[in-house]
Amino acid sequence: MKTLIIYTHPNHKSLSYSFLQKIINGSSENPSIKEVQVVDLYKEEFNPILVFNESKRRRDMHRDPTLEKYRKQINWADKIVFVYPIWWGRPPAMLMGYIDQLFAANFAYRDKKGLLPEGLLKGKSVVCVSTMKGPTNYPLLWLNNAHKTLMKRALFNFVGIKKVKFFEFGNMESPKGKQAEKLDAVFRYFKKIDR
């Protein structure tokens, strides 16, 4: 299994970075995971801003040469892991800009007759590891589960990815947040998964 990790946090001393390290460590002890690539969007200074004009058209985004490296990584991966904080009930703008540009028509999906498109990323699986300051049940009770709905239904299912696992950790700025326990749970998950 080839695993691509998309890390989205500007601070390498953050809890999100600790989760990234646990994912890498668990993956390195898993005989089913043969290769791991990490994309650190802030470190790479990924440009999340969409630009459309006379020379850069939306319908050509799937061929944008500046994004070729990232398209190859997505095609290469069997499993895609997203590591990010939840800010204002959703992933950071940096990650959304990556998604806007990479999950483009004729790369991630193809329009066809009917209500839904053809997902072109079938066979891949996704894991989302996210942290937030608020309580764990806040997105479910207050935001009607908007974060998971956005990621699973509006994005991953749309492009053909049906297997999606969430680790959504709340109370992460609290001394009672059980951070070590949650870091260990993620480490153990990546140490054992086989698909």
Rank of each mutant, 00 (worst) to 15 (best):
S130E: 03
K152S: 11
F167H: 06
N53V: 01
N157G: 06
F190P: 01
V39S: 09
E35W: 00
Y42K: 01
G170L: 00
K72N: 07
R153A: 09
R59W: 13
A146N: 13
F103A: 08
R188Y: 07
L95W: 12
E45M: 10
D194K: 15
L50M: 08
T149H: 13
K182S: 01
Q179I: 15
W76G: 02
K165F: 06
Y42H: 14
I193R: 06
M132E: 10
P65W: 03
W88K: 10
K79R: 13
A108H: 13
W88I: 09
G114A: 08
F156H: 03
S18K: 14
P65N: 07
K79H: 15
K72H: 06
R188G: 10
F103E: 11
L67D: 00
L141H: 11
R90A: 15
P117I: 00
I86R: 01
L143N: 14
D60I: 01
T149G: 09
E168P: 08
F46P: 05
I24S: 07
G177F: 02
L116S: 05
T131V: 01
K43Q: 13
R58L: 10
Y138G: 01
L20Q: 06
K34R: 10
K192P: 04
M132T: 00
Y70H: 07
N11M: 10
I49T: 13
I80D: 08
E44N: 05
V126L: 13
L41F: 14
Y138E: 00
C128W: 14
V83A: 12
L15P: 10
Y84G: 02
V36D: 09
P31L: 04
V127G: 03
R71A: 00
F46L: 05
I99E: 04
Y189I: 02
M94G: 04
L143A: 12
T149I: 05
Y70M: 03
P117G: 01
S174K: 12
S130N: 12
L95N: 09
I161G: 14
E118C: 00
